[in-house]
Amino acid sequence: MPPILPILLGGLLISLGINFFLSPHRLLDGGIIGLALIMRYLWGFKTGLSIFLLSVPIYLFIGKMDRRLLFNSLVGLSVSSLMIDGLSPFRGWFLLPMLPSAMMGGLLVGTGVGIMLRHRTSTGGTDLIAQYVSERTGWNAGVLIFLIDVLVIACGSPILDPRRLLHTLLTISAVGFATSVCVSAGKTDG
């Protein structure tokens, strides 16, 4: 049985971070979320649906390796994708300046991801790859996610002006920090 309360809380935090803080300023996150945001900014695709579809190949790979991780993460992916698209009509109801939005968005997304990882689930995508590698190597999943995020931001940098690129780097730093803290706290609890 997947850990439903952490999945709901994590999905809500991720959705709030994306819809209320990142999207209004056209900032990116890393990983599959970042790729989905790039698709939204360039072509108007729904962010949650894009996250879901981009995660399918990763699920096919992980499904062969670890079925329990796959099932829990599929639930996490579904819930967070639905919440992201479900809350998108509320995007822009209030608008903070770009700097606090970058930090708040990153902390919310990172905390949501960290809560899920701590309970052996995720939103899928590159988080799932990082979790899989972490469980086999002992490396911190938050650090692995940060490294993947930097690669995605490098790919998305042509669509960002220098100011947005700087704020996006702050966002992924906040995501990596919050995710690492949540994952590390989970190791001391258990």
Rank of each mutant, 00 (worst) to 15 (best):
G124I: 12
N72Q: 13
K187Q: 13
D127S: 10
G125N: 08
L16Q: 05
S122Q: 01
A102P: 14
N72S: 15
S157V: 11
I129W: 01
I153D: 01
V181R: 08
V133W: 02
G34Q: 09
L22A: 08
L165S: 05
S173E: 00
V113C: 04
S122K: 02
G105P: 08
T126R: 03
G106I: 14
P162V: 04
T179S: 07
Y132G: 11
F94W: 09
I62C: 08
G92H: 13
S81G: 10
G76E: 07
T123I: 13
L28E: 01
G156P: 05
M39S: 11
V183Y: 06
I129R: 01
I62N: 07
P57G: 06
I4G: 08
G114R: 02
L13H: 10
G110E: 00
T47S: 00
F21G: 12
I148R: 00
H25P: 14
F177R: 07
S15A: 13
S15D: 01
Y41P: 00
D189W: 12
L108E: 04
S50C: 08
L35Q: 11
G156W: 01
S15E: 01
P89T: 13
V143N: 00
R40S: 09
N19K: 12
G86R: 03
T171A: 08
I172H: 00
D149P: 12
I33R: 00
D189N: 13
G110N: 03
F71A: 12
S122Y: 01
L96A: 15
G138S: 10
L169K: 02
M1D: 04
I38L: 06
W43P: 04
F61K: 04
G112V: 12
D85R: 09
S15H: 04
S101Q: 08
S73T: 15
L28F: 10
